[in-house]
Structures are given as structure tokens and as C-alpha cells.
């Protein structure tokens, strides 16, 4: 599709888009199964004895499978972002509070707040505002990973696992600190942090993520409609458009 007076700019490569949608689908599955794990909201109707049906077990299985997908994609994404030239614009370069970045951050924010009456920044590439916004998301996801793995290791109290004793050992090493941090995040007034704090934090962080997603979708649609640069197709076709004279 060609648009008069516009140039096409590639923003997301095929692999980036795959990662984006894998994340989105995993998220939906994690929320659906996670809420079932929290408080089973549908009944099992199948008139089989307990040993033949695994409704909770399947939900937990699904939750853990998307958890593994999250874990693995996170590792890949972090590797690609920091150690390779996979991303054209490095998000962390956009996050550091340099003068240019701070200015851009507020310009983009102003653009949103003035309902697009003011637009004084280069919208062809990743901007500081969205970059910070995505970084927050990655931190939330990382927190889900760490608290999730902490919840998971409680089931490995024997200290052994099918893949060896190193696995629970490593999970304890990397995630036990989430117990006091969760208590702090929950505003707990107790003397001693408890593992339930982790569960509370895992659950409430889900809501922060959902709110994040809702705003994310709204903002991308809003940009598409008001900037008229086809931002929404970044996630689908990989490209957006930018006015030629603006670029020049």
C-alpha cells in the first residue's frame, strides 16, 4: 500500500512481531489461568472420579507453560536488546535521562495531553515516552517472573526435581528476596514477611499489567487515528508511515 506524500519506515522486524504476539497471547492465557488458580471460577461438570480429570492441574499446567514461554522470551529479548544489534533503537538509550530524552519525553506527553494540538518531536522512531512506558512493562513482567518462580519453588520443598537438585536451589537463590520486597510492596505492617506476601503481590501486579495493556492498546489506536501515520500496523505489518516533508 502506498500513500501519497508519505514514506514507509520499518519499525518491527518479523522476529520482533513474533515476540510481541507471543507475549500478548501468553499474557491472556496467564490471566485466564491465573484467575482460575486464584479462585476457581467455574465448576467441573464431568462426572468422572477425581483421578480422571485434572481441571485445576490443567490450568496450572497452562499457567506454567506460558510462564516458561515468558521466561525464555525474556531471556532472548534481554540478550537481543543488550548484546546484539537486533534493535535499531535501543530502548535503554531512550530511557537514560539525557537532555534530549527528557525533552522528548515531555513533548510526547504534551502531545497526548494537548490532544495532539502540539506535536514537536520525531515520531518516525521509538520515542522516549513509549520507551519508558515499555520499560515499565518489562519490569512488571520481570516481577511476575520472579514472584511466579518463588511461588513455584514452594512445591519443590523436597529440594529435588525431575531435572535435578540445582533447579530448586537456583530458584531459591534468585527469588527468595522477593519475599521481603513483596511485603514492602504490599505495605505489610507485619514483623516478618511471609510467603503469602509474594502471592498477594503476584496477584496485584497482574492488575497493574492489565491496566498497562488497556492504556497501551488505547494509546496505539489513538496515535493511529490522530497522527495518521498508521502506527497500529507496526505490530502487524511491521511498518508505519511518515510524511515526507516532515522527514525532510
Amino acid at each position: 500500500m502506498k500513500k501519497e506524500g508519505y514514506v514507509r519506515i520499518e519499525r518491527m522486524t518479523r522476529s520482533m512481531r513474533i515476540i510481541h504476539w507471543v507475549n500478548a497471547i501468553s499474557m491472556i492465557v496467564a490471566v485466564i489461568t491465573g484467575l482460575y488458580i486464584a479462585a476457581p471460577y467455574y465448576q467441573t461438570f464431568i462426572a468422572d472420579p477425581a483421578v480422571d480429570k485434572y481441571v485445576m492441574a490443567w490450568n496450572r499446567w497452562g499457567h506454567f507453560i506460558v510462564a516458561i514461554i515468558f521466561d525464555v522470551t525474556s531471556i532472548i529479548v534481554f540478550y537481543l536488546a543488550f548484546a546484539t544489534r537486533f534493535l535499531k533503537t535501543k530502548p535503554y538509550e531512550k530511557d537514560v535521562p539525557t537532555e534530549g530524552n527528557i525533552k522528548q519525553f515531555f513533548e510526547v506527553l504534551l502531545n497526548l495531553l494537548t490532544l495532539n494540538r502540539r506535536k514537536k518531536f520525531d515520531s518516525s522512531q521509538l520515542d522516549s515516552f513509549n520507551s519508558i512506558f515499555f520499560t515499565i512493562f518489562h519490569l512488571l513482567l520481570l516481577w511476575m517472573l520472579l514472584t511466579g518462580l518463588q511461588l513455584y519453588v514452594h512445591g519443590l520443598a523436597s529440594g529435588i526435581s525431575s531435572i535435578g537438585a540445582w533447579w530448586p536451589w537456583m530458584l531459591h537463590l534468585f527469588t527468595d528476596w522477593t519475599i521481603p520486597v513483596s511485603a514492602w510492596l504490599n505495605g505489610s505492617s507485619a514483623n516478618i514477611a511471609s510467603i503469602m506476601d509474594v502471592r498477594i503481590s503476584h496477584h496485584s501486579t497482574m492488575w497493574y499489567i492489565i491496566v498497562w495493556v488497556v492504556f497501551h492498546i488505547y494509546y496505539q489506536v489513538w496515535r493511529t487515528i490522530f497522527w495518521q501515520e498508521g502506527d497500529i500496523s507496526i505490530a502487524f505489518g511491521g511498518d508505519k508511515y511518515i510524511k515526507v516533508d516532515e522527514k525532510a
Binding site: 520443598a157 529440594g159 537463590l173 521481603p180
Partner: peptide, 12 residues
């Protein structure tokens, strides 16, 4: 107690 959490092994 935070330090002991960091270095806690499993309950095994």
C-alpha cells in the same frame, strides 16, 4: 533475616 533469606537453601 534478609541476608538469611538470600542464602536460604531449600527446606530439605
Amino acid at each position: 533475616s534478609v541476608k538469611s533469606l538470600f542464602t536460604a537453601k531449600s527446606a530439605k
